[in-house]
Amino acid sequence: MIPRSKILIVDDELSMRMQLELMLNNQDYEITLIGSGKEALEKLAEITPDLIILDLIMPDLDGFEVCRRIKRNSQFQHIPIILVTVLESKKALTQGIEAGADDFLQKPVSKLELRARVRSMLRIKKQYDELQATLHMREELSNMVVHDMSSPIISVLLHATLMEEKITDTALLKNLEMIRMAADRLDSFVNDMLMLAKMEHRSLRLNPSMVNINQLILDAEKHFSIIAHSKGISLKLSLPEPSLEMSVDSNLFRRVIANLLANALQYSPANTTIRLSLSARCMNNNKSHLCMQIIDQGPGIPEKYRHRIFEKFEVVDLKRKGIPQIGLGLTFCKMAVDAHGGKIFVKPNHPQGSIFVVEI
Rank of each mutant, 00 (worst) to 15 (best):
R255C: 04
R4T: 14
E314F: 02
S354L: 04
L61N: 05
E221M: 09
K334D: 06
L244S: 07
G63P: 08
D192F: 00
L196Q: 04
E140N: 13
L14F: 12
P299V: 05
V84T: 05
N191E: 14
K6T: 15
E177C: 07
L56F: 12
D102T: 14
I179A: 12
R320E: 08
P208I: 09
N26Q: 12
G322N: 00
E139R: 14
M335Y: 01
L260I: 05
I213D: 01
D62Y: 11
L252F: 03
Q19K: 14
D338L: 05
G298R: 05
V146I: 15
R115P: 06
Q325M: 02
T32W: 14
S5V: 04
N207Y: 03
R320W: 01
F64T: 09
I309A: 07
L51P: 04
L218S: 01
R308Q: 07
T134V: 07
A171N: 08
R306G: 01
P59V: 11
M58A: 09
H307L: 07
N212W: 05
I301W: 04
S247D: 09
L328A: 01
I213R: 04
P3F: 12
N259K: 03
R69A: 01
L24V: 05
Q75M: 08
R275W: 04
R68F: 06
M137S: 14
P302R: 04
V145N: 11
K198N: 08
E21Y: 13
P299I: 05
T273D: 12
G96N: 10
H289R: 13
L318H: 00
H201E: 09
L172E: 12
I226H: 10
L20M: 13
A116D: 07
S243W: 08
S89C: 06
I309E: 02
E221G: 01
Q297W: 07
Q77R: 11
V358P: 06
S279R: 14
E221W: 13
E200D: 11
L112I: 13
L261A: 02
L265K: 02
E241F: 14
K166N: 07
E303L: 09
I82L: 14
I2V: 11
H201K: 12
I344R: 00
I154C: 03
R306Q: 10
P108K: 01
T32R: 15
S15W: 14
I167A: 02
P208K: 08
L157M: 15
V10Y: 11
N284A: 15
L61Y: 06
L8N: 05
A197C: 04
A220D: 04
K287G: 07
V211F: 01
L204N: 04
R308T: 00
A183K: 07
R115H: 06
F224P: 06
I79Q: 03
G353K: 07
R115F: 03
S279D: 10
R138A: 15
T48F: 12
H201L: 06
Q266K: 15
H201N: 11
P80W: 02
I82P: 03
L216R: 02
V248K: 09
Q132K: 11
L131Y: 03
A280S: 15
N73M: 08
A220G: 02
T272L: 11
P348W: 07
P351L: 12
L162I: 02
I57R: 15
N175T: 10
M149N: 10
K236D: 15
H229P: 00
N271W: 07
K319P: 00
K38A: 13
R320H: 07
N286S: 13
N26R: 13
N214S: 08
K107M: 12
A45E: 15
S151V: 08
L135M: 11
L260G: 03
